[in-house]
Design a binder for these strands. Structure first.
Lengths: 230, 230
DNA sequence: ATGTACATACATTCGTGTTTGTATGTAAAG
DNA sequence: CTTTACATACAAACACGAATGTATGTACAT
């Protein structure tokens, strides 16, 4: 074990993170001990405690390493306020989902953060980061939809905030659904399919009179909210 | 502690489940010991081990107790294939979200299952139940949308399966987003608002020619999928 | 009198944090 | 260009608490 130079130390650190990723993903965070992580990385707990203060520190380092490509998405969102904002926004969202589906590491870490660990007080850091990202994304979405409304390329039926919340929730739901069983679900296909139709609907207007579609046989019920609709 | 009759035993069991709910929600599943649960319920671990085989058994009992009202939603979905399927489906979904938001117990248990426990091998039972419910819901959704397409009350732009996946993911995303910080998010308002506009869009058709909305100033970009849309 | 519904006590395992030991790298001094 | 001195990068051992499962005790109900 003659690896004491700086680069070798970095390599050790990376392999510890790799091992933690695999074990966290397979057995959950609390059920994997630092001993197991060390063994899987070919070192001992001494090395782990050298590079990280404790398990939470290791966990956050793992998360941080995987979240770096996220900035790209934000930058692309910021560039959406062109004269064709909706296709740009749609393509940015689809691209983000495809990137997530293609990046094994991000997929695993996202699965760990969402479903292989417990969101409790210790994880306050991770929760805060997550919330911050969400607020940024929704804010960006809202700006884009406001811009779209301003230049008249979105149906007035969609208030910008509602559209932003819907788009965010739709993506969140797609990813949440997919992340649980990625093996029987191709996010890079189904995601864009749903997003595509959704954006088509954003640009569509309500039918003027009661008979919009060919096969119509019955009377059109009112589409607005009923008593249930608050 | 003279409570040895059968009803009292049931009461003890319920209070153990109540205590488990609170503690699981506040501190996560793995970080709360059976000792703590017993103390919070005013008993000892002896009582806990009398009523439940172990922590997982207790966990599943807690989940089962909270999930009972779910059957109501399925029954309501089954009754949606009328001549106004979309409003019926929309109202069923909105109602389900309102019920969830109003039921403190279901809310807490849902939060526990999604974010206060680790989805690992031991939880296979919970995962299987969840998946089964999801498959049922999507299947029902699909049937309703097929029926809607058949009687011509939904835009042909929405294939039934895509519509079902979208609706499911939208709801899942809304609930997932809400459950993390229910205090700054009123699901019973924001949920139906999004669902309402979404269903309006389901019934809307694509604009015929390039200038659908009043404030139009720029050229309309094509709304279909681009190269990215796969 | 027997089973129910618990309480109490015990044994054991497991993971963590810390401490100590040690070989190697590395930079300054001679 | 050595040698010295110290920091680095771990390994190994220890101490401790915490949680679990089980075994046993016991009061009450029927």
């Amino acid at each position: 074990m003659a690896r004491r130079t700086r680069e070798c130390a970095e390599e050790t650190r990376d392999e510890i993170l790799n091992a933690a990723e695999r074990l966290f993903y397979d057995h959950g965070v609390t059920r994997t001990s630092l001993e197991e992580i060390a063994r899987a990385a070919g070192v001992t707990r001494g090395a782990v405690y050298w590079h990280f203060r404790n398990k939470i520190d290791l966990f956050e380092a793992m998360q941080e390493r995987a979240e770096r490509p996220h900035g790209e998405f934000m930058r692309r969102l910021a560039a959406c306020e062109t004269d064709a904002p909706l296709p740009a926004l749609r393509d940015a969202c689809c691209q983000a989902m495809r990137l997530l589906a293609a990046d094994e590491r991000r997929r695993r870490v996202y699965a760990i953060v969402t479903s292989r660990c417990e969101h409790v007080a210790e994880m306050a850091g991770a929760a805060a980061r997550k919330r911050q990202i969400k607020d940024q994304v929704i804010s960006r979405f809202t700006h884009v939809f406001e811009h779209a409304r301003h230049i008249g390329v979105i149906s007035p039926a969609w208030p910008p905030k509602v559209a932003a919340q819907c788009l965010f929730s739709l993506i969140l739901g797609l990813v949440t659904d997919w992340i649980e069983r990625p093996e029987d679900y191709d996010l890079s296909r189904r995601g864009p399919a749903c997003i595509g139709v959704f954006f088509r609907a954003l640009g569509a207007e309500k039918p003027r009179h009661g008979l919009p579609f060919a096969a119509r046989r019955t009377r059109v019920p009112p589409i607005g909210m009923t008593k249930d609709g608050r």
